[in-house]
Design a protein around this nucleic acid. Sequence first.
DNA 1: CCGGGAGTTAGACAAAGTCCAGATTGCTGA
DNA 2: TCAGCAATCTGGACTTTGTCTAACTCCCGG
Lengths: 136, 136
Amino acid sequence: MYYSRDNMAGLLRSHDINPTHQRIEIAHALFSRQEHLSADQVMAIVNTRHSETSKATVYNTLKLFLEKGLVREVIVDPSKVFFDPNTSPHHHLYEVDTGKLSDIDAEHVQISGLPPLPAGMVTEGIDLIVRVRRTG
Amino acid sequence: MYYSRDNMAGLLRSHDINPTHQRIEIAHALFSRQEHLSADQVMAIVNTRHSETSKATVYNTLKLFLEKGLVREVIVDPSKVFFDPNTSPHHHLYEVDTGKLSDIDAEHVQISGLPPLPAGMVTEGIDLIVRVRRTG
DNA sequence: CCGGGAGTTAGACAAAGTCCAGATTGCTGA
DNA sequence: TCAGCAATCTGGACTTTGTCTAACTCCCGG
Ligand SMILES: [Mn+2]
Ligand SMILES: [Mn+2]
Ligand SMILES: [Zn+2]
Ligand SMILES: [Zn+2]
């Protein structure tokens, strides 16, 4: 298994993150599933096993992962942030009824005709979210 | 002035909304400015004048406007929702440092190569957000 | 061993938003 | 005119998501 707990320490180190027990568990929750998880979901997953991890540590760790570029943030639900272990360029499909969030490969998506940026500004990212609903 | 208080009643009626005093004030706050406002900002604006409007009414009214298609929601800041009086198709430029949010006309923007939707799904909207930061 | 820095923790706190039961408002029909 | 009624509004309690802090634990080098 590529994203086994054992491999998490190396992954963390390669992103300049000191691998502690809690950080390994949190990384494993995200990377073994390859899903978009909220902080709450991460905490629930990590704490079903053993050794309780505190809320503060979950939030601290997710923020650290974000700063170090290990995960990315997806802002799509007005009430919570999702953390995304997939940092390659991609877009999102959001089912508004169910809250289900899935990836859209950026490879074949073309965005053209954007106006030039205001001077002194640099693009940090372009988020494309396709909001869908079940027909009815 | 096109978006005077006097014209708000008609605008509300044309969207099947019973124009009450509070609803007119809230619509006026949004439409006279043509800006993206949070619920908090709306409440602050409405209450600088007279006749306090309660938090519950601000939230209820904004949700009603949303359902009736009078305004749209912009989800871009993880901590609060912005309400947008511009319901024509357009995209957004978000300055992550300052929180400043501005419109990008959709007219010349082309998005191509999106994969087909899952069966039984219909697109509710496509949100494109360009996140920018001041060079430094 | 011991000291110190990095990491973790409980729990208080804050901000955004929801909910509810009671008060107000503004019609309407007698 | 005005009582009755439905729609709307309200204060305030509550929930959820996230932040902060001061104390505690862990671990490593000397
Ligand atoms: Mn708000
Ligand atoms: Mn929040
Ligand atoms: Zn993703
Ligand atoms: Zn807009």
